[in-house]
Design a protein around this nucleic acid. Structure first.
Length: 696
DNA sequence: TCAATCCGTATC
DNA sequence: ATACGGATTGAC
């Protein structure tokens, strides 16, 4: 029934609606969360919506008796649907928000992660803001980013970290010349070729300037770019660097921190082709830049790049899909290198962009490690109170004497207790599947195993632990996260200013190049003009005993990020890491060899069968529901089932492991099994995550 | 014999 | 979720 006084756009009664003369059928993706409805549905387009009902617009349709939102995928001459079609109820707005490329990308991401298109579309499209949409196009031109909010530290307006190259100016356009493959990469971008690169930035590198130069190259070829960074602080820095090179009207910053109106305004400017360069956080990976030339992700090991909402896609994987589908270049960048990036290199898909050893040696600080055994406490009473080893104390004192700040990296509080070898502190792992061992919580439903350690992946009991490294049979709880406090450090260096960044304190973008102790948690290290005189990386052994297969990679990533802010050893720059020199990440830091570490890491994961060497899926939910889903799923030939293992009182988890080649089949099978469940209105939800970031 | 209700299934 | 169809049941 038409409401009384309905506008002219909806003339007459429903019974009098006429189908559009040309392409009267609209294929619509409806916004419903059920897996078995994850396919297009056809509707009839009435004449009054004929003009507006273009592919990509938001629509309202009647679906199962209710009005739901949808996106118009395409107009067709006829429908395959045997029954009669309902009318398109309304075109919400004529703005075609879902471009064909974006539709293809979202479908591919949904398929990769055993999720639904509707879920991915929710991640990719910002909520509509009608007033913004109605604004004149001239007003929609991207404004420069608002000034960074972080003014609490009283630093200058140059809060942009990238504004300062800690090692001095290497020349605006010759920055890539320090990497043998750099100039060729820039040439490929300028030529519009789809180069794929894995780039390890040199210590002290002004990475934002390098990425801006890469963008300038593709912009010259009249193509667009999307650069994704982990957090707002990196975004501010990279945006500033791009603005310096391209001007304020050519670059737009997209992040969740913007309000809905500003977010939609900028996103629309991109969709409408007014701006072709996007820098942003996570969801910017989907930004609808037309004629894409370059995609880049900075620091792909940062877990902020892993989307926490279903179907849990990772920025790097989204960009790989997109580079493939849209013929764009891709740069996976960071000081560190992930095992996933290493796989891109080893499979031949990407070329590594790294500096020669000589260049590296000249740029890197001197790195010293201090293990448990050689941790002589400094004689200075203050340093003893702070439990600072003498080497660390001397390094810091030297930097302060040279009128330079010292960076002190401390772990964030709150890591999970797990089990490690009591003697060598190697994390305790399951002998069958290499999962982490833990002791079941007291009062757990399953008391049969007594207090014996259990694998958190496959659930097997470990009755007689024996450390594969040192042979010890004793285990200890590995409780970590208690960083030394700024106060303790202050006592060790009387009269020296102590500043905190992160870990409860505000995150500082920069600190002045004056003597000070800058205590920062990983990811919150402020930049400093010219670089720190020294960095102390505390609690290394504690970081390394966390119950996570990615722990070595993650620890090295954090260390490199901090050490990269220190001056070259030629200028007296020193890094002291509190961890035993035998550990892989420590060696990689001392030699500054992230590629070697990534290769080792990938080899290790190949050995124990962990992503990215294999494709894994975690299925969790109430025990009956998990069993039911597993019974229904048509697993590919290579599939291996680990578990189930208890998660908490109500839920358990099963891990599925397949060869990488079977990844697509596994995702499709899981999606189908999930669809069978939702079709039967199964009450208990089962969560499926493909290649989950952490399993513990 | 017909209508009210239940259950299963599709949702265009 | 909701709506519809077919089966089922109960009353006349």
């Amino acid at each position: 029934m038409t409401r009384a006084g309905a506008p002219a756009r909806r003339p007459g009664r429903r019974g009098e609606w006429q189908a559009a003369a040309n392409l009267p059928v609209a294929s619509v993706a409806v916004d419903v969360p059920l897996a078995h409805l994850d396919r297009p549905f056809d509707y009839r387009v009435p004449t009054q919506f004929d003009a507006d009902a273009q592919p990509g617009v938001r629509v309202r349709v009647r679906f199962a008796g209710r009005l739901v939102d949808g996106l118009l995928l395409e107009r067709c001459a006829a429908s395959e649907h045997p029954g009669s079609l309902a009318w398109l109820e309304r075109v919400v707005s004529p703005e075609p928000v879902l471009t064909p490329e974006l539709a293809t990308l979202c479908r591919a991401v949904a398929d990769r992660y055993a999720g639904t298109l509707a879920d991915v579309l929710r991640l990719a499209l910002p909520p509509r803001h009608a007033r913004v949409e109605a604004e004149a196009v001239e007003l929609a031109v991207a404004r420069p980013a608002p000034p960074p909010q972080d003014r609490r530290d009283g630093t200058s307006d140059r809060a942009e970290r990238g504004a300062m190259s800690t090692h001095g100016d290497h020349g605006t356009l010759s920055g890539w010349a320090r990497y043998p493959r750099g100039p060729a990469l820039m040439a490929a971008l300028a030529d519009g070729r789809a180069a794929h690169g894995v780039w390890q930035a040199l210590p002290g590198e002004d990475w934002t300037a390098r990425l801006a130069e890469a963008v300038a190259g593709v912009a010259e070829a009249a193509r667009g770019a999307v650069l994704v960074v982990p957090d707002q602080r990196d975004l501010d820095a990279l945006h500033a660097a791009c603005v310096r090179l391209l001007g304020p009207d050519s670059v737009v910053a997209l992040s969740a921190e913007l309000g809905p109106a500003e977010r939609y305004r900028r996103w629309l400017a991109v969709r409408r082709g007014i701006v072709r360069v996007v820098v942003g956080t996570r969801s910017a990976a989907f930004a609808p830049v037309a004629d894409l030339g370059l995609l880049a992700v900075w620091d792909d090991g940062d877990d902020l790049h892993a989307e926490p909402r279903a179907p849990y896609p990772h920025v790097r994987e989204v960009l790989v899909q997109r580079a493939h589908a849209e013929g764009a270049a891709l740069l996976v960048a960071g000081y560190a290198r992930t095992a996933e990036a290493q796989l891109l290199v080893e499979s031949g898909w990407a070329a590594e962009v790294v500096a020669e050893r000589d260049t590296l040696r000249a740029a890197a600080p001197r790195v010293t490690s201090i293990g448990e055994d050689d941790r002589q406490l400094a004689r200075d009473p203050g340093a003893r109170a702070a439990r600072l080893p003498s080497v660390a104390f001397e390094a810091a004192r030297g930097a302060l004497a040279a009128e330079l700040p010292v960076l002190v990296q401390v772990p964030r509080a709150g890591y999970l207790p797990a089990l490690a070898c009591a003697q060598c502190r190697e994390p305790a792992r399951c002998r069958h599947c290499a999962g982490p061992l833990a002791v079941p919580a007291a009062g757990s439903a399953d008391g049969s195993a007594g207090g014996l350690p259990r694998c958190r992946w496959c659930g097997r009991v470990e009755p007689a632990f024996r450390c594969p490294v040192c042979g010890s049979t004793r285990l200890r709880a590995s409780v970590v996260g208690a960083g030394r406090t700024a106060e303790e450090l202050g006592r060790a260096f009387p009269g020296v200013a102590v500043r905190a960044s992160g870990g409860g304190a505000d995150v500082l973008a920069t600190v002045p190049a004056k003597p000070a102790l800058v205590v920062a948690t990983p990811g919150a290290e402020p930049a400093v003009e010219g670089g720190y005189g020294a960095a102390l990386l505390l609690d290394g052994w504690a970081l390394l005993s966390r119950p996570d297969l990615r722990v070595a990679e993650e620890t090295l990533r954090r260390w490199l990020a901090a050490a990269a802010l220190v001056r070259p050893h030629g200028d007296g720059g020193r890094v002291v890491v509190m961890a035993d020199s035998s550990a892989g990440p420590v060696q990689a830091l001392v030699r500054w060899d992230p590629a070697w570490h990534a290769a080792t890491e990938l080899a290790g994961r190949t050995e124990v069968g962990f992503p990215p060497a294999v494709r894994m899926a975690a299925v969790d939910g109430p025990p009956d529901a998990v069993v039911e889903l597993l019974a229904a799923v048509q697993l590919p030939g290579s599939a291996e089932v680990l578990g189930p293992v208890e998660l908490d009182a109500e839920r358990e988890r099963v891990l599925l492991r397949v060869h990488r080649a079977d990844g697509k089949a596994l995702a499709a099978a899981l999606h189908a099994a999930q669809a069978a469940r939702t079709a039967r209105k199964a009450a208990d939800p089962v969560r499926i995550r493909v290649d989950p970031q952490q399993l513990t």
